[in-house]
Design a protein around this nucleic acid. Structure first.
Lengths: 145, 145
DNA sequence: TATTGTTATACTCTATAACTATA
DNA sequence: TATAGTTATAGAGTATAACAATA
């Protein structure tokens, strides 16, 4: 890799960081439903997509530390959106899964046409949305441990 | 727009949100320099790119409320990374600009090859980075007011 | 001993409401 | 009165350190 290439990559990083930050800020605030936060929705999405798992695994998926996941799960469990089942062989762990109510809440969030980000995406062209769609796996790879 | 298209857009939103959230989380934490936060760096980047402006304009650029910008600027000014000059005709406002020290800090941040995101981006292919580069303006448009 | 998860604690980020100074 | 910015206050988000339970 040439020095010029490295410098270009650093520049991309410098462009990407503020843009990600500002968009995430907007998404957090524009959320319509106030009973669950973006962080909590993200955790529910992971449970839906990857199925039941332990608190530690969830924390790893969400890129938060275990104590943060403890808090997220306490909130969701209190409202009946997730449940815990004992692990079959390890009593330290519990297997967390999303409940009917959690799925329903998630669906209504996702389907809502008024959802801010969905509206915003609708203002882009199909090709621009395709570009974004292609980039989602890259964002996930960047966020890997 | 068909119902199927709308549903696809909602799905994209649902994929994009957690991915943005998790990557932003990682970026916030992996930051090497502890004297300025991601939020503060982003504000300095805006001052560099768009030139001196008032606190209110900066808040709008950064998509934060004015009191949040007050705090950000207090921190940066205290450390000498930005300075205020009186507005020529309106004594309520001050014009904020980045200082030499602020530019130097920003440069060292951006150039650092060890910077976490830069390293991560280096692990992608050139084409993948080009995809990300193309998407930055879209992220900015999504975050517009 | 090592691992899983929780509790205790604290700091960052950010907002809303109320206020001050100036226009 | 309206606008620009700050102060006061509070809640969300997240981390590290210390602890408890189990493996």
């Amino acid at each position: 890799m040439t020095a010029a290439t490295r410098s270009t990559i650093a520049e991309l990083a410098a462009q990407l960081r503020p843009s990600l930050l500002r968009l995430t800020r907007m998404i957090r605030n524009q959320r319509a439903d106030t009973s669950v936060t973006l962080t909590q929705i993200s955790t529910m999405a992971t449970l839906r997509k990857r199925g039941p798992m332990s608190a530690g695994e969830l924390a790893a998926c969400e890129r938060v530390q275990p104590p943060s996941m403890t808090k997220i799960l306490a909130h969701l469990e209190e409202r009946g959106f997730v449940r815990r089942k004992p692990h079959p062989s390890d009593r330290r762990q519990a297997i967390i899964s999303i409940t009917e109510a959690g799925n329903a809440l998630y669906d209504s969030e996702q389907r809502s046409r008024e959802a801010w980000l969905t509206q915003r995406l609708g203002a882009l062209t199909g090709e621009e949305r395709a570009q974004l769609r292609a980039v989602v796996p890259l964002l996930d790879r960047l966020a890997e441990h």
